[in-house]
Amino acid sequence: MNDDTRTVIRRVLREHARLPVDVDTLGDDADLFAAGMTSHASVNLMLALEDAFDIEFPDRMLTRGVFDSVSAIAAAITELSGDGEPSAAGGGT
């Protein structure tokens, strides 16, 4: 896992998660839902992450737990893309 992935995740969070606090005040393991992310905002977050990393989250990964912290999101992206690099390649079916 590299810092780049987390930086991109934080940018996407800032733009789409509609958190009542600045994401930079939250640690990588902080619970985003406890910090005020709504289920509705979490769907926009997932769509934006698919776009930013050019991946598709399969149904089994579309759960609250997979998106509840920066670390959890990074782990999911690593699992899907192999290297966790934001890229224009691969992804989808």
Binding site: S39, H40, V43, N44, M46, L47, E50, E56, F57, P58, D59, L62
Partner: peptide, 12 residues
């Protein structure tokens, strides 16, 4: 309203 959001991201 909930489903309208979820169906955008769900795959099956």
């Amino acid at each position: 309203a909930t489903d309208a959001a979820l169906l955008l991201i769900a795959k099956e």
